[in-house]
Design a protein around this nucleic acid. Sequence first.
DNA 1: TCCCAGGTAGATC
DNA 2: GATCTACATGGG
Length: 294
Amino acid sequence: MNLQVKNNDLWVDEIKDFKIGQTLECGQSFHFEKNKDEYIIIAHNRILRARQISDDTVVFYDMSKEEFEEKWIRYFDLDRDYGEIKKSLLSKDKKLKEAIEEKSGVRIMNQDFFEMLISFIISQNKQIPHIKKIVFDISKRWGTYLGNVDGKPYYAFPTPRQMAGCTIEDFIKLKTGFRAPYLYDAVNKVLSGEINEKDARALDGENVIKYLCQIKGVGEKVANCVALFSLDKRDAFPVDVWIKRIMEKMYFGKETDKRIISEFAKEHFGEYGGYAQQYLFYYARDEKISVDKK
DNA sequence: TCCCAGGTAGATC
DNA sequence: GATCTACATGGG
C-alpha cells in the first residue's frame, strides 16, 4: 500500500484485496451512498468521498495522510493481511474458492458500536435499501449536521447522548414498526451503561453474544453482526436467511436449522468464521441463490 | 393478492 | 426443550 497526497486528496495505490465498492456494498454498512462513480460515506463524524480509480488504486478526497493513517486504515481494516486470511480459509475448505474470488475485494470494516447495534436491530425482517433509509432518517432526526454534497445535506449517526429523551413514538414515526420498542430499549441500556462497548470488547465467543442479547430485539443474528462489525470478533458467524440458503446448498443439501448451521460454522471455519460468512453472504445475495428452492 | 426481507419475543405444546 | 406465529413496512 502506497499513500500519496495530490491537491488535498489522498491517492492510495497498490492496495491488495480491497475494493471500496465491494467493501461498502456487501451488507455490513448502511450509512453511505453511491453518486455516479463516487462513494459518499458518513463515518467518524465527517463526510468521506472515495472513488475506485483502478484495480488497486482508490482516491479519498480531501484527506491528509495523517488523518488516513489515524482513522481510515483501521476503519476499512487495511492493516490486516487478507491474503493470509484467504489462504487459511481455502486450506480448510476449497468450496469457498468461488465466493472468495468473486468477492475478493471485501474487507470487514471496523464500525461504531452504537451505530451497528441500532442498525442491525432495524435490519431484522427488512431489505438493505430500507435499512439504509431508516439509518439516514435517524441521523437526520438526532445526528449532527455535517454539510452538503451536491445540494444534499448529510448528518452523522447520533451518539447515545444525542438520542437521550427519545420515545417509542419517535421510532414509530420513523417507520421502524415493531422494532420501535427494541430501539428504545437499546438506546436506554447504552445510556445507562448497562450495555457498553468496553465490557462487550472484553468478552469472547458465546459470552459477548449473550451479553448483547440482554437488549430486547437483539437475538443471535443481530448480536453476531454487532460483534463482527464493531467489536473485532472475527469468529462471529451471523446466520441470516441468505447464509442459511447458501449453507444448506453447499454443505447440507436440505433444510437445516439455523442453530445447526451456526454450530457447524464454528467448528468448520473457526477463528476466521466472520470472513467466510461475509464472502458467502455477499456471494449468495448477489447470485440470488434460489429463494424458492425446496 | 401473496410472498419476502441480513429476526425476535412470547405463546404453546 | 423444540416449534409456531405475530410483528410494521415496503417492494416485487
